[in-house]
């Protein structure tokens, strides 16, 4: 597609979409959102990029092959699940760490659940992009 409006617009939109997807990812633990939705939104940014500037440019902008992103995400999600077992809990039990915890505030919660969600984000992001890029290049 060769439209200058789309190309210029995409430059801003792609970044915004990825940023918004990260927001959705982190917001996901207590409110609607999460890794799956985040991954979908993030991949939309690059799909838009591929539509506007072609898949070759989109792959360049992404730097890493989308398949690798997806598989790395699977690895992160698995490790986050296994992590619980080192503390004697059942697999995939959430492990929590509260940074700067005080009596009335929980501080900054870090959990394996978040890392699992990041894994999901990457799996969705990577697999959607691999499918879309493959389809774009084929047609």
């Amino acid at each position: 597609m060769n439209s200058i409006i789309l190309r210029v617009g995409t430059q801003y939109l792609c970044g915004l979409l990825v940023l918004f997807s990260l927001y959705m990812l982190i917001r996901g633990h207590n409110e609607p959102g999460g890794g799956f939705i985040g991954g979908l939104i993030g991949s939309t940014g690059f799909v838009l990029f591929a539509l506007a500037c072609g898949t070759a440019d989109a792959r360049n902008a992404l730097k890493v092959m989308p398949q690798n992103i997806a598989m790395a995400g699977l690895g992160i999600a698995l490790l986050a699940g296994i992590f619980a077992a080192f503390f004697g809990d059942a697999l995939f039990t959430g492990q929590w760490l509260f940074i700067n915890e005080t009596a009335d505030s929980k501080g900054i919660p870090i959990s394996t659940v978040l890392f699992f969600d990041i894994g999901v984000y990457l799996v969705v992001f990577g697999s959607i992009l691999s499918i879309v890029f493959a389809m774009e290049e084929e047609i």
């Binding site: 398949q67 690798n68 598989m71 790395a72 699977l74 690895g75 698995l78 699940g81 296994i82 077992a85 059942a90 697999l91």
Partner: peptide
């Protein structure tokens, strides 16, 4: 108990990740 049951399930996926990246 968890380990015994979950290891055969988790292992192939870890193998898949490593094999794919390499």
């Amino acid at each position: 108990m968890t380990w015994t049951l979950a290891t055969p399930l988790v292992l192939p996926f870890l193998t898949a990740v490593l094999a794919f990246l390499a």
